[in-house]
């Protein structure tokens, strides 16, 4: 018998996901799962699911979970945490949910310093509804509601979540990471661990933005999508730690 060196995280159910080939959502769930397992808090974890590509994640979470209305995950998480202060709450939100329809809830939960961990999958597009422009869509990037490419005179400029949230007093950790190579995956996991450790220690709000891919709606191969994150997205959304308070 060989030695077991890798196994599926117990946080997720043993079943395939619906995510498109080359999409990073699945990897993000997995990293969070591994972190929660390593921190030994699976038995009190709750996944708070938003509307967007990750909406069907209630079929993957192997812990109690709650599906939220579009944009309202931070409010719902606030309610969950009010009722269950010792639970560990993982919010997974996309750019439509977190930045557009749910900006009020995002900023207000951060401002109150709710003791929750928000994972923001920023892929510059509305994936689930078929590739419409997002608040994060890059200048010149084509989407079904900006077929000629995003024109700042018509559609404004990309909105930057970390930079906004870092201006607030309450958040403890605000960081942006990527997943386009192994060192960055390892780095992302490290930051996620810190973000959940903060919650376990009841320090308050943590926010981790992960530059994510959408090969289907970007009309790129998985490989080219990773290159796009590295070469195009990172320029507008620089990686780094915007705030880290102990």
């Amino acid at each position: 018998m060989g030695e077991m060196i890798y196994k599926r995280t117990d946080f997720l159910k043993a079943r395939p996901t619906h995510y498109c080939p080359g999409c990073t959502h699945g990897l993000e769930h997995k990293l969070v799962g591994e972190v929660l397992e390593e921190l030994g808090v699976i038995d009190r974890s709750i996944m708070v699911i938003s509307v967007g590509c990750s909406a069907p994640a209630y079929d993957y979470a192997n812990v109690d979970n709650i599906a939220c209305l579009h944009g309202r995950a931070p409010a719902t998480a606030t309610g969950v945490k009010a009722a269950l202060p010792d639970s560990i709450v993982y919010l997974h939100q996309g750019d439509g949910d977190l930045l557009s329809i749910g900006l009020d809830e995002t900023i207000s939960a951060a401002g109150r310093g709710e003791n929750i961990t928000v994972v923001f999958a920023n892929n510059n597009i509305y994936g689930m509804t078929g590739g419409q422009m997002a608040a994060t869509t890059l200048i010149g990037q084509k989407a079904t509601t900006c077929p000629a490419g995003r024109d700042p005179h018509l559609d404004g400029y990309p909105m930057k979540a970390c930079e906004m949230i870092a201006t607030l007093t309450a958040p403890k950790l605000v960081a942006r990471t990527a997943l386009y190579d192994i060192p960055h995956i390892i780095q992302t996991k490290k930051i996620l661990k810190k973000a959940f450790q903060n919650q376990i220690d009841k320090k308050g709000y943590s926010f981790v933005e992960i530059l994510s891919t959408c090969p289907t709606n970007w009309h790129m191969s998985p490989q080219a999508s990773m290159e796009h994150v590295k070469n195009e997205m990172e320029e507008v959304y620089p990686l780094g730690i915007f705030k880290d308070e102990d």
Partner: peptide, 15 residues
């Protein structure tokens, strides 16, 4: 809008 969704979270916890 936030109130009702906070209520949702707490109610879902059986409170």
């Amino acid at each position: 809008v936030a109130s009702v969704n906070m209520v949702y979270g707490a109610g879902a916890a059986g409170v």
